[in-house]
Every structure is written in C-alpha cells, then in structure tokens.
C-alpha cells in the first residue's frame, strides 16, 4: 500500500483527535470530561485488541484482565517502591505483555472457539487470583493509588489536563496501531489471519507471530491500565472480570476491528450512548447486550465498516477494500 494511500486512513483519526483536544475550550462539564477520559482509556486498549483481533484474527474475551495487570502493576509499584506515574507506564506495559504472551501460548495448541473460551476463563481466573491475593492485591476491596501525576511540573490531576493527556495517549496508540497495520509485520499478521497453513508454508513462523500479536496488544492494555488506575485512584478485581472484557469485545465489534477509525468510534459510542439516550446503568447494559448481538448477527464487520459499505452501495461505487466478515469464517 503506497504511503499516501495509507496516510489517508490515519488522517481522519488525527483530525478527530485534534478536535477532541480542543473540546476543553468549550468548558465542558466535569461529568463529560470523566466520561471522555474513560472512553479514551478504553480506546487505547481497543487499539491493542484490534491488532490482535482485526489483524491476526484472534479474539480475546479476557482482555480486561490485561488492563487489570497494568492497573495493578501501577498500584503495587507505587505502593511498594514509590514508583510514579511515568515510570510505571513502561513497567505495566512489560508486565501486561508478559502475561499476554502467557495467555497467547495456548493459542499454538488450541484454536477456534476453544481458544476463545480459554481466554474468557483466563480473565475470570485472574480476577479470582486478585480477589484472593490478600493484602498484596488488597483482596476484594482493591488498592488505592495516591501518587500525584505531573508533567514538566504541571499537575495532571486537574481533570482538563488529564483529559488532554489521555487524548495524546490515544493519538499515540492510533499512530502505533497504524504503523503496525502498514508494516511488513502487519502484513504477516494478516497473512496468518487469512490462511494459517499457507502462511506457515511460506516460511512464516506462525506461532511466534501469534504470540507477538498478544504481546503487542498486551502493551496497549498495560498502558491503558495505568491510565485507568491513576484516573480512578482506586482499583478492584471486579473492574477487570468478565463484564469489562465483554464490553471491550463489544466496543471493538461495534466499531469494527479492521479500520483505524473503528476502536475510536466503538469506545466513544459505547461510553456516550447511554448518556445521550438518558438511560440508567441497568437499561444501558441491556442496550449493550442487544447491540452486541445485533452487530454480530447483522454487521459482522462493525458499524463503521457497515456504514462505509452502505455508502458505497448507495452511490453504486466499489469499496476500496473488499469487506469480508471480520468475525470468523471457520465453518470448514
């Protein structure tokens, strides 16, 4: 893919993010900023998940557990070694990457739906371990994070500043994800997704690349975990159990995993839709569930890809890229 063409996919994302960075000028409410920050933190993890799912075709239903690893790493190194925000980002990224690699190892032996079930079980297992970790992990009540966050002497604990920081992290992860998609590495991952046996016969080390994709998505998840821990200032195991994992999968499915705009759209839609429709948490969860089912059955490429495809069909033009279902085409 020529650079000019591939830049075209990154540009809309960056323009959107610049617009988002200007939002504080409109003096939005604190509630809006908080929602936007949580959405942004999710989007970072989603960019990682889209490398794993969209590019490599491996679905992880336990991804929130990796975010949890990042968050707990940040909280524990802050407590035990007095490590601050900035140093804990690489530490958490490394920890989450290691755990992601461990979760990825079974993918060499187990594939298809069995592996998806396994990732789900891994996520559950992790939250049980955190709950039973005693004082070290703070058991069911979790851990507090007290360290202040500062950049060049400027306190990041002001909500607007934290918002801007999260937006820039989202921009970084979008760029990183774009760089991966348009690299030789990304092309290898897609080759594995499309036909694992063919890829292997061309000399691609399928196992190493699969685990590599897990590691990459783990780094994203770890970083988003640190941002989450420092934003909420308190973390507990239930935040990283099965529901958050299902929500992450929902967001990536709604947005579409293969387009660069997908994770951004998914994260924002899922965060703001209940607010827009004025739903209480219980109703909004029902809505999420219904959306997930509807997207899987009706728009397996995600909402954005569906809209794009509809646009092209409406104007009777051929889409730039063939749109096959992103979800799964097993059924051998």
């Amino acid at each position: 893919m020529p650079v000019s063409n591939s830049l075209r996919s990154l540009l809309p994302v960056l323009i959107l993010l610049v617009l988002f960075a200007l939002v504080p000028l409109l003096s939005p409410s604190n509630r809006f900023l908080s929602l936007a920050i949580s959405a942004g933190i999710n989007v970072i993890a989603l960019y990682g998940l889209s490398v794993l799912f969209g590019q490599t075709g491996i679905l992880s239903m336990g991804h929130a557990a990796l975010v949890g690893i990042g968050a707990y790493t940040a909280a524990i190194v802050a407590r035990d070694f007095n490590v601050g925000f900035w140093l804990s980002i690489p530490l958490a990224g490394i920890m989450a990457a290691i755990v992601a690699a461990l979760i990825g190892v079974p993918s060499l032996r187990v594939s298809g739906h069995h592996f998806v079930i396994m990732t789900f079980a891994f996520g559950q297992l992790l939250s049980i371990i955190l709950t039973n970790g005693g004082d070290y992990t703070g058991a069911a009540s979790g851990l507090d994070v007290q360290q202040p966050v500062a950049l060049f002497g400027l306190s990041m604990d002001v909500l607007t500043h934290y918002y801007l920081m999260v937006v820039s992290f989202v921009a970084l992860s979008a760029i990183a994800s774009w760089a991966i998609i348009n690299s030789r590495y990304g092309r290898t991952l897609r080759a594995i997704r499309e036909n694992e046996k063919l890829a292997a016969s061309l000399g691609i080390n399928v196992g190493r690349h699969k685990i590599g994709a897990f590691v990459v998505s783990g780094i994203f998840a770890g970083v988003s975990g640190v941002l989450l821990a420092y934003f909420l200032r308190h973390i507990s195991p239930s935040q990283f159990a099965s529901f958050p994992s299902i929500y992450l999968a929902l967001m990536v499915m709604i947005g579409g995993a293969r387009l660069l705009l997908g994770p951004l759209a998914g994260g924002i839609l899922v965060a703001f839709l209940p607010e827009l429709l004025n739903l209480d948490p219980v109703q909004s969860r029902i809505l999420y569930g219904v959306c997930l089912i509807a997207v899987i059955l009706l728009l397996p490429n995600g909402l954005i890809a569906g809209i794009v495809a509809g646009w092209y069909r409406f104007f009777d033009r051929r889409p730039v890229q063939p749109n096959e279902p992103a979800v799964e085409r097993e059924g051998k």
């Binding site: 679905l59 239903m61 298809g112 739906h113 998806v116 079930i117 529901f243 299902i246 999968a249 929902l250 499915m253 969860r285 029902i286 999420y288 569930g289 219904v290 959306c291 997930l292 089912i293 899987i296 059955l297 397996p300 979800v327 799964e328 085409r329 097993e330 059924g331």
Partner: peptide, 16 residues
C-alpha cells in the same frame, strides 16, 4: 456455521 459468533451472541445474552 460460526460457533465463535454464537459464543459472542451468548455473552451478549448474559448481559441482557
């Protein structure tokens, strides 16, 4: 024909 999609549908169903 696509068991994984069924699995995801069932996860949505759990929430609902």
């Amino acid at each position: 024909e696509r068991p994984t999609n069924g699995f995801i549908v069932s996860l949505g169903l759990i929430i609902v």
